[in-house]
Amino acid sequence: MPVDTTRDATNAGSRRSRRRRRNGRVVRMTLLAGVFLLGGCAGDAPSALDPAGSGAARVANLWWLLFWISTAVFVEVMALLVWALVFRRGRDTRVRHGQPLRFVAVAGAGLPLVILVAVYAVGLRDLAALGHGPGPQAPTIEVTGHKWWWEVRVPGIDGATANELHIPVGERVRVRLRTADVLHSFWVPQLMPKTDLIAGEMRETWLQAQRAGRYRGQCAEYCGTQHAHMAFLVVAEPRADFDAWLARLGSTARQPETDAQRRGQQAFVQASCAGCHAIRGTPADGRVGPDLSDVGSRWSIGAGAVPNDGGHLGGWIANPQTVKPGAYMPPQPVEAARLPDLVAYLQSLK
């Protein structure tokens, strides 16, 4: 994913969090854990700490606030603990039998109450901000969760795609969420916190990206066998590209150009493929599995299970169960000789 700045974000935090504490064995162990944080490198992760949209940015700011408060409280508690371990040991230590209730009440209840009320107020502000969706004129995208892929549609446009949705940079886009079966959760860590997909109901969230890029999302509510492979991609792009995407979504699929592609199309339509999948502009109009009209341009096969290239595509068609065990697509009895044609055709659908 495009997150070249991830390292910066984490390291900036790390530099700030670098501090010296050397107090006894207990704290040394804790420090060791802290070192993991210092070395923290998110790689290409879709990191919530590297927000690219206003929703996630708000939460990232909230996180850093909470992080520093927590660090301060933890240091306070550890300091008291270490004090006791260092200065209250040994035979000569005289036990004091007082009841410092004021200390307990102030440190344990008073101070926390002040901090918590303040933090709660900030949290309420952020809750309201996240709930403040786009206006009625904003673009709307409809996402339907299936076991285990995402169907993507745009109201007023006939076509559909899967596991990939595009948004115009800078604009707030409304996302309507439904599920065809069990609960799922729509999560793009760099853009927006989660919204669950509730069976029998509709939920709404919104996405807004401040910079162009490809942002990984993934189902975050356990949804059965292949919950692990139910990822999707949000592509934030300039408005013109977004409009082009909308246009492609409404048009028929590209026609085959080579002989191999033509044979592949024939095979697709005549074999069992068309029973479950649709390719716009061909007789294939199945609605069980994803619409494949633009499958050649997608970032992955099987909702993030494997990269979208010829080898993986062929393997997937022959037997999806080796790639994504439990997925609803059965192994396909395609003749070995026809497989390259089929792959060539599907890869041409861009």
Partner: peptide
């Protein structure tokens, strides 16, 4: 959210009661 925030306070009281116990006693 408010209730979930408040419930941390009784736990805080216990933590500081134990810390105070250690700070006054002989460990």
């Amino acid at each position: 959210s408010a209730a979930s925030t408040v419930i941390t306070i009784p736990s805080g009281i216990q933590i500081f009661a134990w810390l105070a116990t250690m700070l006054l006693g002989r460990v």
